[in-house]
Design a binder for these strands. Structure first.
Ligand code: FES
Ligand code: FES
Lengths: 187, 187
DNA sequence: GAATTAACCTACTATTTTAGTCAGGAATTC
DNA sequence: GAATTCCTGACTAAAATAGTAGGTTAATTC
């Protein structure tokens, strides 16, 4: 197992998705702006998250990314493993033969430690972080900023079309699946 | 917290020291040979371990490195932290101000996760690995190889001085502190 | 159907970290 | 004084990380 900023970015982004899951898809552009990470870099990370079956992409206007599974079924370990492909714990990659054909001490040490670490991180789910005391207030604070930003864009689009209170169909297939448009729409 | 090959090398090397602690100092040359890591790279790692007060260096012939404390008082977390100086968990490095002056979600998430991880790795000591079932046999196996190598060197030095059964003072200050020379000496 | 949005894809560049090398100096033993 | 081994600093090579650029494709809105 390996821990780097790559995994940190991914976990943070996934947390973002988990928090806003009820309000529909989150665009990478928003995460990029909010977290100060490059958009294309995020795209690369999310490509892996998608291939690992952790997120689903929703194309078109009003689209973005959402969790492929409930937050309670996604562990921190899964997220980190999906972006850090270099998970070769030992040097021999499974076969115990890096010391004249026989198993070295390193082998046992790291398979042991790494399974323990993995078990530990597997026990922590995204949901646990979302439901953590303190998050609701922080989430609210930040939603004002992000929400305002999203609304500003939607408003601008609406004004551009002549009318103000528009917000009809943001993304029909998504609305159907979530049944929650009010939070995204303007009025 | 961060996990990389750097920390892996260090933990493995420290385990080596812990196993052979009773038999006196272990040279970096031996660890280098046995683990297949560059000697100078090991020296750089051990420089940090020494500055962190985890190991003590013993100069001169018969010298090497030994643990500065009992193996039962050295945790995996300490070792990893001492070589990976880049332990900035958050982006703001303590102050919660990376989001318009206020704390972002990332902050709480990572300080929380990282303390948990740290607690976890702090609970695992070197001694636990040395005393682990399975290690004695493996250690014995490997000691034949390393031991033979060390003995070969000592023998060569002895022969060089005309007598064979010498093994008088390998490293006096070390012998005094350990009171265990027989394992190191030839006969 | 044209415009827009945002996912999706590929290749390239820059920066940083990791790993290794080199050349020497200092303490210790013999 | 020679050998050994820690110790130091500077320098190089390779790899991973982070960011950039320029597109294509699917959905939505008008
Ligand atoms: S790493 Fe598996 S035998 Fe050495
Ligand atoms: S990382 Fe500390 S406030 Fe954002």
């Amino acid at each position: 197992m390996r821990l780097s900023t790559k995994g940190r970015y991914s976990v943070t982004a996934m947390l973002d998705l988990a928090i806003h899951d009820k309000a529909g898809p989150v665009t990478l552009a928003d995460i990029s702006q909010c977290q100060g990470i490059s958009l294309s870099y995020l795209e690369q990370l999310f490509a892996r998250l998608r291939k690992s079956g952790l997120v689903k992409g929703v194309r078109g206007p009003g689209g973005g990314y959402r969790l492929a599974r409930p937050a309670s079924e996604i562990s921190i370990a899964e997220i980190i493993c999906s972006v850090d492909e270099n998970v070769d714990v030992t040097r021999c990659k499974g076969q115990g033969n890096c010391q004249d054909g026989s198993k070295c001490l390193t082998h046992e040490l790291w398979t042991n430690l790494s399974t323990k670490l993995h078990e530990f991180l597997s026990g922590i789910t995204l949901a646990q972080f979302v439901e953590r005391p303190g998050i609701p207030e922080l989430s609210l604070q930040r939603d004002k900023k992000i929400g305002r930003f999203i609304l500003a864009k939607k408003q601008a689009a609406a004004i551009n079309q002549g009318v103000f209170a528009v917000s009809k169909n943001i993304n029909t297939n998504e609305r159907a699946s979530t049944g929650l448009v009010d939070k995204v729409s303007v009025r």
